Simulated assay, not measured.
Amino acid sequence: MEHLINQQVKNIQISGIRQFFNMVSEFEDTISLTIGQPDFLTPAHVKKAAIKAIESDFTTYTHNAGYPELREATAAFVKEKYGLTYQGKDEVIVTAGASQAIDIAFRTILSPGSEVILPGPVYPGYEPIISLCGAEAVHADTTEHGFKLTAELISRHLTEKTRCVVLPYPSNPTGVTLDEEELMKIAELLKGKDLFVLSDEIYSELVFDGKHRSIASYLRDQTIVINGLSKSHSMTGFRIGFVFAPAAISKHLLKVHQYNISCASSISQKAALEALTGGKNDAAPMNGEYSKRMNYVYRRLTEMGLPTEKPDGSFYIFPSIKHFNASSFDFAYSLAKDGGVAVVPGSAFSALGEGYIRISYACSFEQLQEAMDRFEHYIKSR
């Protein structure tokens, strides 16, 4: 019966990150720096809120867009943190993680033949959804521009078919982000054009210097903001994300969301409410630890002679391994098998990631030290 499967589904692949993680998991005594999973526990007060929700039988459907009190708290959170103004009633949708938020956004705004401009290298979760919509992903090469999708790069790829520009910052896999001037230039370029900006800000609370800035501050009417609690509050399994957009856009996003999942988990929504009120600054100590780890890994990689762009946020770093004259897959496989350290080949992040590897430092400092020692030994033994 496989010949009856939707051809667009047959054409997409399981994430290269997961494929490689599964492949190297068979190697014994390997330190994994692969998956973007925070190594911190979900804050205790957030877990207690989830338990209380169960015990008080808050286990039925909520409003399709989410528990009203949570939507208001979410709007208040981004107002306080980033200066963004959204109405909880009709401009915020609670989703099953940021991944579902991205899915409903693309399915709402894309039509067959549409083009979406993505920075390359880029998180592999966008292109398959774009393809399922019958649209085309257009990768802009950021490797000579500090891994930043600048206004200049965007302008080179704009066509009459362009329907969306994706700004995933702070970036997975590179850790870089855009500053205020860069965002303003993009807003100036795109303002008034018949296209949307999808701004994936899931790592917004993990910025090392200064505060996160959103393109929605300068281009609100055309921007759909994606966020969530997986990274900021170490709540990956709770599956809570958010979509922020003007009411005229949100009403259409909500239709797709409704027929997709009806609503996010009621129990997780109660936990999210506690995270955004009683735990609005829970990310701060985690972020401080990530910054410490980033500086350590950056120093070690630099001392090893690996050209590396210093991250501005998230918990990833993306060094070049081009001078080893091996594909990123072969290098990463050999490093896991012979060096005892698992990383992700850059090719998992589009063809423009070839020649790089992604290292996640979402693990203990002790593990990072051992991993970097093994990495250095592996390089010296090549």
Rank of each mutant, 00 (worst) to 15 (best):
G241L: 07
D282V: 08
M1Q: 11
E205A: 11
Y218S: 07
I240S: 14
E72V: 10
R163W: 01
S15P: 03
A44D: 02
K191C: 09
F242P: 03
G305C: 03
S111L: 07
S131A: 08
A275H: 06
P168D: 14
E160P: 00
D57L: 06
G237T: 05
E274R: 04
T162H: 13
V46K: 06
S381R: 14
R71Y: 12
G66F: 06
G241E: 01
A135W: 12
G36K: 04
I54R: 00
Y296D: 01
D194I: 02
F77Q: 13
E180Q: 10
N281E: 04
A326R: 15
I51P: 00
Q37M: 08
Y218K: 05
A151L: 07
H212F: 15
H377D: 15
N287L: 09
F238G: 00
E127Q: 14
T143R: 06
V166F: 11
K211M: 15
K255N: 05
S171W: 05
S99R: 06
A371T: 09
Y203N: 10
A53I: 12
P170I: 12
N11F: 09
F244G: 08
Q222D: 04
E289M: 12
P285N: 02
L229F: 03
E309K: 13
E289R: 09
K280Y: 07
E182A: 13
M23I: 03
T150V: 00
G355Y: 05
V46N: 04
R239S: 14
E181K: 10
V343T: 15
G237D: 07
D312K: 04
F331V: 10
L352C: 12
P43Y: 00
V344W: 04
A362G: 12
S262G: 01
F315Q: 09
K10P: 09
G88H: 10
Y356H: 12
S114Q: 01
V122A: 10
S32Y: 14
D209S: 14
T302K: 00
G210Y: 11
Y67T: 00
R374P: 13
V341M: 00
F242D: 03
R220G: 13
I5W: 07
L178R: 10
Q269G: 14
I267F: 01
V122L: 02
E144C: 03
V243D: 02
P246K: 01
L153F: 06
A216Q: 06
H139R: 03
Q19V: 15
L368S: 09
F329E: 11
L178T: 07
H145R: 13
L153T: 11
T162G: 11
L41M: 02
T177K: 12
V197L: 08
H45T: 09
M23Q: 15
I14C: 03
I224F: 05
S334R: 02
N22W: 02
H157T: 06
K185L: 14
L301F: 11
S230Q: 15
L352F: 14
G16C: 11
N172K: 08
S268A: 15
G228E: 07
Y203S: 13
G279N: 10
T143P: 05
T177I: 07
L158C: 06
A187S: 15
I357D: 03
I12Y: 08
N295F: 00
A96S: 08
A135I: 08
